[in-house]
């Protein structure tokens, strides 16, 4: 408060000084503004700065709390189960009289479905990104980008629903299976969700390259494709790697669609054509049956911690890769 008053005092003395040249009315008007303004706004300004500070800190604090809450609850599991039993155990019987909490089948399920999704979405995604960045005429580009963005906006439960009514039937008939709820079905679903991420990040990476690269290569007589292959793709490689990693992160975290189309059998999938269960689906499907702070409840939080760590590592590495890519671009 003391600071304010001193600052106001200066304004008064500065504007009170007469300098001739302009009319007295104007002078008076001027000093009035300065006074009014300073007094009201100094306090307002001070309050608003503090408010923004509080808002900002609150938002950031909440983000921090996520880690705290998950880890605190998840780690209680290890009062009952060892880390080895949890991560390496093949048996998941949370409600048995002698319960088992081994999540290896879920880790395997998540890994398989992610690998499948990446095998499908990476080639298609990078090809699409090249198409949008280098081949498509501007109007097509705008329209396609909007469609791709809408794909990312479709709720995963809607995709899961279509997975049940359309895709699983197609998988069942095409591969002559008794059930269409397989890892492959999940992989296809997830690839649809990872594609927008991969395309947009890879597209940004390619388009961020300076035009000089293209001009230099074309001026040497290289064709457009040779320019893309030999100059642009290598130069944008960090960005493309980041795109793939973010796609992986997206795939690992997807819940509803995979829960709806993968059959959710607790088993280490022997191929892409059998049922499997992911970590995310386990949490979503079983949380309703748990008692607060029971071992099962804690185990689901512990799965959450594993997911949080996996995705965080991927996100942070890809952030560094992207950051480096941006620096190189400059």
């Amino acid at each position: 408060m003391k600071e304010f008053i001193e600052k106001i005092a200066f304004t008064k003395s500065a504007s009170g000084k007469e300098t001739g040249s302009r009319t007295a009315v104007e002078k008076l008007e001027e000093s009035q503004w300065n006074l009014n303004k300073s007094f009201k706004n100094r306090i307002g300004e001070y309050m608003i700065e503090k408010l923004i500070f509080v808002l900002g800190i609150t938002a950031l604090l909440i983000m921090g709390l996520i880690f705290v809450f998950l880890i605190r609850t998840g780690f209680r599991l290890f009062e009952d189960v060892t880390l080895g039993q949890f991560l390496m155990g093949r048996e998941w019987y949370p409600n048995a009289t002698n319960p088992r909490f081994g999540i290896l089948p879920m880790i395997a399920g998540t890994t398989m479905v992610t690998v499948g999704a990446i095998l499908i979405s990476v080639p298609i995604g990078i090809g699409s990104a090249i198409f949008i960045a280098e081949v498509a005429p501007p109007k097509t580009k705008t329209v396609f980008k909007v469609i791709i963005e809408f794909l990312s906006a479709i709720p995963s439960v809607v995709l899961g629903f279509l997975g049940i009514v359309v895709l699983s039937n197609w998988v069942r008939i095409s591969f002559n299976l008794s059930s269409g709820f397989t890892v492959l079905t999940g992989s296809i679903m997830i690839s649809l969700m990872a594609l927008p991420t991969i395309i947009s990040v890879a597209d940004d990476a390619i388009r961020a390259l300076p035009d000089e690269y293209r001009e230099a290569s074309l001026a040497l007589g290289a064709s457009k494709w040779e320019t893309i292959k030999n100059v642009l793709l290598p130069a944008a490689s960090s960005g493309i790697i980041a795109a793939v990693m973010l796609g992986v992160g997206r795939a690992i975290g997807e819940t509803m669609a995979v829960m709806m189309v993968m059959g959710n059998a607790v088993q280490i999938p022997s191929s892409f054509l059998v049922s499997g269960r992911t970590m995310t689906a386990t949490i979503a499907a079983e949380m309703g049956d748990t008692v607060r702070n029971g071992t099962h409840y804690n185990a689901l939080f512990a799965i959450g911690v594993v997911l949080l760590l996996m995705t965080s590592i991927i996100n942070i590495i890809s952030e560094f890769v992207l950051h480096r890519a941006q620096k190189e671009g400059r």
């Binding site: 950031l60 998950l70 975290g253 997807e254 819940t255 949380m287 959450g304 949080l308 991927i314 952030e319």
Partner: peptide, 28 residues
């Protein structure tokens, strides 16, 4: 550091937010 944390949180699975909400808002 804060920016990296925020970017990371944008990529955390939604089910993890569900767990967080359950722990903090529903119960705590």
């Amino acid at each position: 550091l804060i920016r990296i944390a925020v970017l990371n949180l944008a990529g955390v699975p939604s089910i993890v937010y569900g767990l967080f909400g359950l722990g903090l808002f529903v119960f705590f």
